[in-house]
Write a protein that binds this DNA or RNA. Sequence first.
DNA 1: CTAACACATACCCCAATGGCTATACGATAA
DNA 2: TTATCGTATAGCCATTGGGGTATGTGTTAG
Lengths: 107, 107
Amino acid sequence: MSTAHDVLFRTLADPTRRALFERLCREGEKTVGALTARAGVSQPVVSKHLGILKQAGLVRDRHEGRHTHYSAQLGALTPLVDWTSQMAGFWQSRFDDLEDLLRRMDQ
Amino acid sequence: MSTAHDVLFRTLADPTRRALFERLCREGEKTVGALTARAGVSQPVVSKHLGILKQAGLVRDRHEGRHTHYSAQLGALTPLVDWTSQMAGFWQSRFDDLEDLLRRMDQ
DNA sequence: CTAACACATACCCCAATGGCTATACGATAA
DNA sequence: TTATCGTATAGCCATTGGGGTATGTGTTAG
């Protein structure tokens, strides 16, 4: 089974790929050429990473003539936020249990 | 350069490792043996993953006789939350810029 | 129609990494 | 002290995956 946050963590684990996503978040829509210019890797590598980001739902592409524009899809980060708050929730409830225990012991 | 969220994404990208961390969040402190029992991998592999989680600051270990107890360090997730809200922030501010532009064009 | 362009795909290479078994090491039990 | 137990480390192997170059495909310019 491959859960949503599984895909997100895997996809965002690579620095080059994450840098591409960050640029799209900061600077908005960009063409492959513009992204390649400052990516530090070759154009085919950029295209491959963008493909992986797209599969993860993190980016969208829009074709315009012979250019392809990519943009960040921020909503795709939701499962990541959910996972994080779920972990925090488990931790909190165990803390609450401890508090309960201490309170009962106090009586 | 290896930023904090860089380490976190890399560390949490592996399913086995993330499962260990999740169990520690859900069920609290556990020994290596207890974790190995349901991990689906060998004890040395569990130990290795726990070592990586520890390096990332995601878990703590406590030695008690010949047992080692591991527990989740939830605070270590903070850089992940920060990164996410930073990305959301960039997206939001670009949206605000667009709103400003449209408002000025409207006059 | 042809050439140049923007991007995607195919293919190969190599380093990183996750899994294993064997073993070392510290602590306890006998 | 010796045997056993719990965990960590060492060494090995197979796979994954990120990087490159070469080339395919569709589009616009001349």
